[in-house]
Write a protein that binds this DNA or RNA. Structure first.
Length: 277
DNA sequence: TCGCAGGTGGTCG
DNA sequence: CGACCACCTGCG
């Protein structure tokens, strides 16, 4: 018995902006522009027509407890965008380009796993790794749209494996990081802040900031990757190698809005780069 | 074919 | 403490 849940009047939301801005790796665009994916063990399809969001395979209770917070629907993005746009013209353009981005509030463990895997890699490969990890070692959630869906393996499961066991996932040297981090989490519990994140194997400043932002709701976190470096080099004339200067700039100029600023910049510079090719 | 990708840990000076 | 550099793998 499948249910659909429809919400009217959703503002400042675009599925592609949100699911293709690099914050998540388990959503796929369908031919009709809708997106199918899984979070918190629940596969759904989302379709947006004007301001009307239809979530297929979703009850009202699921929507209120899972998807409303996940999609960050209770936050006023108009205000954030106004504030950032007023800062400078480049940010104004970035906000315009990614006007429907929402920062997803994702499962903490899944975020840790995803961004450890993401390092020094590329999006198609990251998606493949995460999907294989779920299918080979995760827990079966259910069948939806003639496909079997799996959750990512939890820390306890991964802690009992070796990097060798993970070979078919083809994580490369990240497999070792993942097993080691799983053992740390299984023993000590999930990290509660950036300091505890940095204590995990395979988690450095970039991954810690991604997890803080996407998995801990720390909106001031400002992950600096090669794309954001490029964007800030162009926009603010900061030396692209000087990560410290960039972090300082973000802290001083964007404060608690740093995470949003980062997503708009990231999406904008990547869009621009795609257009070039 | 081959550099390089949404970095990190280890090892130097 | 800052500047290298190796590291798995597979895309473009």
């Amino acid at each position: 018995m499948r249910k659909k849940y429809i919400v009217k009047n959703v503002k400042d939301f675009n599925l592609r902006h949100t699911f293709c801005c690099g914050q998540c790796f388990r959503w796929e665009e369908e031919a009709d522009g809708s997106f199918t994916g899984i979070a918190f063990g629940k596969p759904v399809n989302m379709k947006l027509d004007g301001g009307s969001l239809t979530v297929d395979n979703c009850t009202e209770e699921d929507f209120e407890t899972v998807w409303r917070p996940y999609l960050d629907l209770d936050r006023d993005y108009a205000e954030i965008k106004k504030s950032l746009s007023d800062h400078d013209p480049v940010m104004g353009k970035a906000v315009e380009t990614g006007s429907g981005i929402r920062i997803l509030q994702q499962d903490l463990w899944e975020t840790i796993v995803s961004f450890i895997i993401s390092q020094n890699s590329n999006i198609p490969r990251i998606r493949g790794c995460i999907s294989r990890l779920a299918e080979l070692f995760g827990e079966k959630a259910c069948t939806y749209r003639e496909k079997e869906w799996f959750s990512l393996p939890d820390a306890g499961v991964l802690a009992g494996l070796t990097a060798e066991d993970l070979a078919p996932v083809r994580l490369g040297y990240r497999g070792r990081y993942l097993v080691e981090t799983a053992r740390q989490v299984a023993a000590e519990g999930l990290p509660r802040n950036k300091k505890e994140l940095l204590a995990l194997t395979g988690v450095g400043p970039k991954v810690a900031d991604c997890v803080a932002l996407f998995g801990m709701g720390q909106t001031g976190a400002f992950p600096i990757d090669v794309w954001v470096s490029k964007a800030m080099g162009e926009a603010y004339g900061i030396d692209e190698k000087d990560k410290k200067a960039m972090a300082r700039y973000a802290f001083e100029h964007f404060g608690k809005l740093g995470g949003f600023a980062q997503q708009y910049l990231f999406y904008y510079i990547r869009e621009k780069n795609m257009g070039k090719k």
